Every structure is written in structure tokens, then in C-alpha cells.
Computed example of a mutant assay.
Amino acid sequence: MRNVFVDGYNVINSWPELKLIKDYSLEGARHKLIEMLQNYATFKGYKIFLVFDAHLVVGSIEKKERYGEYLIVVFTKEGETADVYIEKKVNDIGRKWEVCVVTSDLVEQQVTFQRGAIRMSSLEFYHEVKSIERKISSKIENNGKVNRDTIEDRIKGEVLEKLLKIRKSH
């Protein structure tokens, strides 16, 4: 299973729709990101750690919340940035498991890459998440059926019957 570490505030400040929400509600932007990543993680089967800085919050302790089977939201403890948290976790598991780090922080990308993780910019990740959202919407519109576009979908009537008879005889 792929483990994905996401620098939460870096993503919020990079994704167009989240930047708009953040301008009037940071909490609203966090919840929207959680919702989007929960759908993405479930569809892909990836374990996602969404990490938010709480390093400037006096007295804060590390807090983890699980959202379903695949998403864990982490608020760091006082004095610990999301970057530091992610670096420590990647250092622990980066060479044992497939790990991807999502951030646009170049230093963070270099450090995590050296520790065995794949790196992805926040905007690259945005396009991947949006692509999965389109696939989910398409599945919902098709009542959960995968749009396969088979020959049976394109050929009707006598021609289809003849082709099916040929296939059965071989």
C-alpha cells in the first residue's frame, strides 16, 4: 500500500478552490481538503497522512484523527512543523514502504527524496485528485458500472448476433 504524506497548509495555499475558501474560513478549507482526500484515498486504496502545522499553538500536543480506513489527519505538537513531522515519518518508513510526499516546498522535496520517498508538487497532486473526482462522478452517473465501451455497446442487431455466434463457435 502506498503511504502519502500531505503538507496540509501547503496544499491549501496551492489549490485554487481551497485558497478561495481559506480567505473566509481556514477551518472550511481544511474540511474541504479532508473531504476531497477521503474520497481520493478510498478510491485509490492509499493510506494518506494529512499533516497540519500546530507548531505556533502554545501548549498543543500532537493530535491524530482517523477519517475512514485510509485517511489520518495529524496536527503537529507545539514547536514541530509539518515538514519536520513528515521528515521523521519518512525517515522511519521511506525505505520499507512506498511513500509519496506532497508539498511544493523544494527543501522538503529534496530531504524526503533522499530518504527514499517519491515527491509530488501540490499542483501535480491537485490534478491527480481532480482526475479521480471525475472518475468517481462518472461511476456514480453510470450507477456504479464501469464504462467499458465494448463492441457490444457499439454494434447492434443482426451484426452483433452474427459476431456473438462466431465467438461462441471458436
Rank of each mutant, 00 (worst) to 15 (best):
V74H: 01
G116S: 05
K168L: 05
K63A: 13
I93Q: 09
K89R: 12
G157K: 05
M36E: 08
I72V: 06
V90T: 02
V129N: 00
K162P: 02
V4M: 08
R2D: 14
N3M: 09
R148S: 11
I132F: 14
E65L: 14
R119Q: 09
I72A: 02
K77S: 12
V84K: 03
N91A: 13
G59H: 08
Y9V: 00
N91H: 11
L164N: 07
K130L: 14
H127W: 15
L163T: 07
I136F: 15
K139R: 06
V146T: 15
F125E: 00
S104C: 07
F52N: 01
M36H: 05
E161T: 13
V74W: 01
F125I: 00
Y24H: 09
I140N: 09
E17C: 10
M1R: 10
F49P: 00
I93C: 07
M36L: 08
V58P: 05
D7M: 12
T112L: 01
D83L: 00
L106Y: 14
K139F: 09
S138G: 10
R2H: 14
C100S: 12
L26M: 13
R115K: 05
I118M: 09
K168N: 05
K145H: 10
L160T: 08
L106E: 14
E108Y: 12
K19S: 01
F75C: 05
D92R: 04
S131C: 06
F52M: 04
S122T: 03
E133H: 12
D153P: 04
L71F: 15
N10S: 08
